[in-house]
Structures are given as C-alpha cells and as structure tokens.
C-alpha cells in the first residue's frame, strides 16, 4: 500500500504577491490550523518538496525563478496557485511587468481563489493537492514498471 500521500512536503514561493496570501499560508502552520498534522512540512528546499505553493502573480523578473524551482522538484510533484493573483494575476493583472497567473510559466494543478485566500481554503487546496500527488505517484510507479 502506498503511503506517499501521508508525507507531502511544501515549498512556498512568493511571486509578486502583496504578502496577504503569504501571511495566510504561514497561518496554516500555526497552532490554530496546524497543517503538520497531515504530515505537511514547510520546507525551503525545492529538491525535497512535493507540493509547490505559489502566491502572487508572475512577473518578467521572477518567471525564470518559478520555472527553475519547478524543474528542480523531483517527480511526482503538484503545483497549487494560492490567491487570485497566482490564479490569474488578480488586481495586478494590468501592470506592465505582470505576465499573469502562475500558469503562464508552469503547469498549475490546483487553483485556490480568494483575496487573500483564507487558511481554510488553502488547507482545502493542499488536501486536494495531496490526493492528486498520490494519483501522480501511482501513475509514475506504473510507468516505471512498464519500462
């Protein structure tokens, strides 16, 4: 039986968010919401991460950074865009330097809307992400067996 979904490690990257969503992401690790009870660890290292949490839109300066972080994460991996900015560009969408949401540079699996996204909805998104993570892991294992 695979237990891979019981240990999802998060990497949180702040694109060009106003910090509203970041504070809510960090709130998830506080005693009130305590995401660690799902086995979640908020790691700072893309190479150890399973779930990539992006807050804020992507601008021309950090597009390459977002891409590099995504590429450094080993498979299976899941990307969650947290907040309206990360989903679509949000209120900054029309700015000259903003490309749009995170999905303009990397494939996003789950969108968590809200300005700012509430901790409850972020946890909801992470739980959905964990289910998807398990699915992707199973697929990866099957394809490895086939080869």
């Amino acid at each position: 039986m695979s237990t891979i979904h019981k240990s999802p490690w998060l990497l949180h990257y702040d694109g060009s968010s106003c910090n509203g969503c970041d504070i809510e992401v960090l709130a998830c690790t506080t005693p009130v919401y305590d995401v660690e009870r799902f086995g979640v660890i908020n790691t700072g290292n893309p190479m150890h991460a399973d779930i990539f949490l992006v807050t804020g839109g992507v601008n021309s300066q950090n597009a390459s950074v977002v891409k590099q972080i995504y590429e450094q994460m080993p498979e299976p991996k899941v990307v969650i865009a947290v907040g309206t900015c990360a989903c679509t560009g949000g209120i900054f969408k029309e700015c000259y330097n903003i490309k749009g949401g995170a999905d303009t540079v990397i494939p996003v699996d789950i969108y968590v809307p809200g300005c700012a996204a509430r901790p409850e909805s972020i946890i909801d998104g992470v739980v959905k992400g964990v289910a998807l993570f398990k699915e992707k892991a199973a697929k990866l294992a099957a394809s490895e067996k086939a080869n």
Binding site: S2, T3, I4, K6, S7, G39, I41, M47, D50, P74, E75, P76, A137, L140, A141
Partner: peptide
C-alpha cells in the same frame, strides 16, 4: 512515512 516517500521519489 517520510522515509518511505523519499525512497519513492524520482532519482535526480
């Protein structure tokens, strides 16, 4: 769980 997951991740 953490250890098992790490063994199941892609080898990079």
């Amino acid at each position: 769980y953490d250890l098992k997951k790490l063994f199941e991740k892609e080898a990079l």
